Each structure stands twice: as C-alpha cells, then as structure tokens.
Simulated assay, not measured.
Amino acid sequence: MSVVDLTRDLVAIPSHEDETAAGDFLEDWLRRETDATVTRDAVGNVIARKGSGPETLAFVGHHDVVEPTGAQVANADGDDPNEYVVEERDGRLYGRGTADMKGALAAALLAFRDSEVRTPSSGRTQSGDADSAGELVVASFVGEEVGGVGAQHALETGFAPDYAVVGEGSTDYSGPDVTDVAIAHKGRRGSTITAHGTAAHASEADTGENAIYRATEAIDGVRSLQPPSVDVAGETLEGRLTVTEIDGGSAMNVVPARCEFTVDERTVPGERAALERVTEPAGIEWTVDQDLPPMRCTDEAFAECVLEAAAASQAGAPELVTKPHATDAGWLSRAGTECVIYGPSEPGEAHTDDESVSIEVLERCRETYRRVARRWLTAR
C-alpha cells in the first residue's frame, strides 16, 4: 500500500465530531498489516507497540480533524453522503485532514509497519522480538483539535515514551521545499479575568463601584506585563499577551456590577507572564480556561538523529527550527518525553477550505520516519 492510498483511505473517513470510524480503521489496519500489540483505550486512542528494551521511540499523530466545509464532504448523490472528498491534482492531495494530519499519520503507520527492530543477542532483525534493542510505538490520539484530550488521557493511563516524533507540520519553515525538524513550540494559555463591582443607578454613580472601570485598570495591568522569551535553534520564541474579548454592563443607566475580558497568552518553554499580578487589586478574579503547554527538546543527540534522517531523505538542507503554535508534543514534553516535530504540512495549510498536502513530501516523511526508527533503535 502506498502512502497516497493510505492517506486517501484515512482522509475519506469523517472524524470531526466522532473519531470512532477512523479509530476502527486504524485498529483494523494495524492488526492486519503488522504483528504489533495493538490497543484501543477508553477515549479512542489507538496505540501499537513492537519490540522491547530500555527505551521507547514513538511516532505520534491524531485522527480527529476540524469541521470540513461543504465542498469537502461528498454530496448526497455519492455512495456515502458523509464521506469526505479526497482529490489528487498537481502533485497534491486535497481534502480535510490531508495536512492536519492524516497524511503524516499514514506515513508513520507505513514506517512503523516496515521497520525492523534488531535483537542484540543474535543480530537478527525481527518485527517484535522480546529481547530487541528498544520498543517502537505508533500512537494516534483523539481530541487534539479540542485541547489534547486524547494525549492527556494516554499520559494519565501510563503512556510514557522516552522519545517521540510528532507528525505535525514542519515543512517550508527554513525555506521552500524543505521539511525541517522543529525542536520547540509555543503554548497557549487562555484566561478570563472578571472584575466585580456594585450596581447603582447611573444618576447616583458614586454609590456604586464600576466594574468596567476596574476591568480597564486590569487591562492596563495586562498590557504592562512583559512576556518572557527564550532563544532556541538560533531563533527567539517570544511570549505574547493579547486581550481578545470584553463583556460588561446590563443597561445604559446602570453602574455595572460585573465586567469580564479574555486574554490569549502565547507561552514559551520556561517562565510564564505574571498574570497573577493583575488580580492584586480588590474585586478582580482570574480563571484559566485552557492551558496548552509549550514544548522544547533538550536531548541534542535525538534532535540531531532526526535531522540527519531528514537530510538523507530530501534534496534540501533541513534545519532545526521552532513552531509558533501548540501541539500534542507539549503534553508529552511536559510529562518527560523528549519530542521533535517533523511532518508534511506547510504553514497556512491546516484548517483551510482547500487544505492539501504534497505527495512528494508525504513520501519524504515516510522515508524519514523509517530512517529514524532504524538508526535510533539499533543504536540504543
């Protein structure tokens, strides 16, 4: 089976509201095509393992997608009106999930199937020997698009690889037609800050406490904070704080008793912006609504191993780079897994109305994943 065929099969399966059918396909494919130990956990994550040893290398992806557009779903005259449309033209596959990230998942599945794990005692190569040099894993999570639900569940129930290659996009970061190796990315913390006051009639405003005034003072406090930054791979990852929504008041002639605003915070590995300072005045409450962790690989040998495999799989010269947004690698990294990101998606492709992925780059990723598995595990 080619990476194009497997990507087509995966992309065609609807998985923006319910990942069950995609999980069924993955589980069946792994049981049919490999001799790995395959499990499906309570939330729908599919994880396959072969080999054993002191260290584990995992290829990690997800099989949920964001909601497709009408044009990305088959019409009612098709065999399945709910099936996603997949089209091939000009060397690319088009369809919801091609870039984010069923194409990368297909490449990882094939590399996992075709990888052999060396047994140190005999020198033989086998797909799943009990005495092999290390364990090789492929994992596909649910709920990445809604905050990493699947990744968090897997970690809470014992998923703990030593190393992971996460198949999110890293193509065209350092230059055109190059798939780079991302060794860090930002996280995102979303907060709601609520200012409480005392309602009063606007004609007697001094008898109340204006929550909007308190909120604007808190906003000034947010704007005065200096987000941290960190230097990685010759780049500077800079944190950012942005007030994005505000809501308060009940009527034109009433002093408002409540006003709240939201803050989008882009976090970096290491320190956080001191948002707690905003709550120091009386009447200010801070609630964290979402906290997607950043990621940074601290194992230089692992990053260089993946970079060497990437360089051997393409004509261009890949580099170690950073990404601006959060992925499941953040959850893994926070739990202690050394992660890098390597995948076919290019900036601006994910979640778009005409989402697509390069077939040549899919083949490149498949070969890189295969080389990573072979070179890293046989060296342990």
Rank of each mutant, 00 (worst) to 15 (best):
S170V: 12
D180L: 05
P81L: 11
A205I: 15
T207E: 15
L292V: 06
P256I: 08
R32P: 13
R31N: 09
Q226F: 11
L10I: 01
H325C: 13
S140Y: 08
V117L: 11
D353P: 13
G239M: 02
E204G: 12
N75F: 08
D129W: 02
A309P: 05
N45L: 09
E360M: 12
L57I: 06
A130T: 10
G53A: 03
N253R: 11
T352H: 05
L26I: 06
A329G: 15
R31P: 06
V306H: 08
L292T: 01
V181K: 07
V73T: 02
W29V: 03
V230A: 07
D177E: 10
S15L: 03
D114P: 06
I13K: 06
T7S: 00
E144T: 06
E300A: 14
A106N: 00
E280Y: 12
R364G: 14
A22E: 00
A335H: 10
N82P: 04
E19D: 01
T236C: 14
S313Q: 05
P281D: 04
D247V: 14
A312G: 09
T279S: 15
I246Q: 09
S250H: 08
I341A: 07
L155G: 10
G239F: 05
A335T: 13
D9I: 07
A139E: 05
G158M: 04
D24N: 12
E355W: 03
L109A: 13
V138H: 08
V165T: 01
R92E: 09
T179A: 11
E88F: 04
V138M: 02
G187S: 12
V165R: 08
A202M: 10
A350S: 10
S121Q: 11
S52H: 13
V117S: 03
A200Q: 09
G197D: 00
V65R: 13
V165A: 04
E367V: 11
E217G: 13
A273W: 00
G78M: 07
P281H: 03
R371Q: 11
E19I: 06
G221N: 10
V340E: 00
L241T: 01
A379F: 01
A154K: 00
D328H: 10
L377G: 07
D291E: 04
S313L: 06
F261R: 09
E55H: 12
P228S: 12
A21M: 11
D328T: 08
F302L: 14
S250K: 14
E168D: 04
P228K: 04
W331Q: 15
V278E: 08
